[in-house]
C-alpha cells in the first residue's frame, strides 16, 4: 500500500536536488531548471496532501496556480537571459559583475 509518506519522500528528494542545482550551477538557465525542480516538489506535496487529506481540492487548485506562475516567471527570466547574452555573450552568472560595491 502506497501511503502519503511515500510521495512526501519523493518530493523531499526532488526539493533537495533542486537546491543542489541552484547552489552549484553557474549557468542561469541551469539555475532555472533547479527552480523548476523545487516548484515540482512543492506541487507534488500539494497534490498528495489533497489526495490523502480531508479530501478537498484546495491543494490541486493551488498547484494549478503554481504552474501558471512558473510559466510566467520562466518567460520573463529567459527574456532577460537572452538580452543579457546579446549584450555580453555569456550565460554565466558570475561573469555578470559590473555591479560590485
Amino acid at each position: 500500500m502506497i501511503a502519503l509518506q511515500h510521495y512526501l519522500a519523493v518530493s523531499a528528494v526532488l526539493f533537495s536536488l533542486g537546491m543542489l542545482g541552484i547552489l552549484t550551477r553557474r549557468n542561469a538557465v541551469n539555475v532555472l531548471m533547479g527552480v523548476e525542480l523545487v516548484l515540482n516538489s512543492a506541487n507534488l506535496n500539494l497534490v498528495a496532501f489533497s489526495r490523502f487529506g480531508p479530501g478537498n481540492l484546495q491543494g490541486q487548485l493551488f498547484a494549478v496556480f503554481v504552474i501558471v506562475i512558473a510559466a510566467a516567471e520562466v518567460a520573463v527570466a529567459l527574456a532577460i537571459v537572452l538580452t543579457l547574452y546579446r549584450l555580453r555573450r555569456t550565460p554565466n552568472l558570475d561573469e555578470a559583475d559590473i555591479l560590485r560595491g
Binding site: 539555475v31 523545487v38 496532501f49 491543494g59 527570466a77
Partner: peptide, 22 residues
C-alpha cells in the same frame, strides 16, 4: 537577472513551506 534568480529561489522555498502548511 540577479533579482529574478534570487526571487525565484526564495519564493520557491516559500512555496515548499506553504505546501507543508497545507
Amino acid at each position: 537577472l540577479k533579482y529574478i534568480l534570487f526571487g525565484a529561489v526564495s519564493t520557491g522555498t516559500m512555496l515548499y513551506g506553504l505546501s507543508l502548511l497545507y
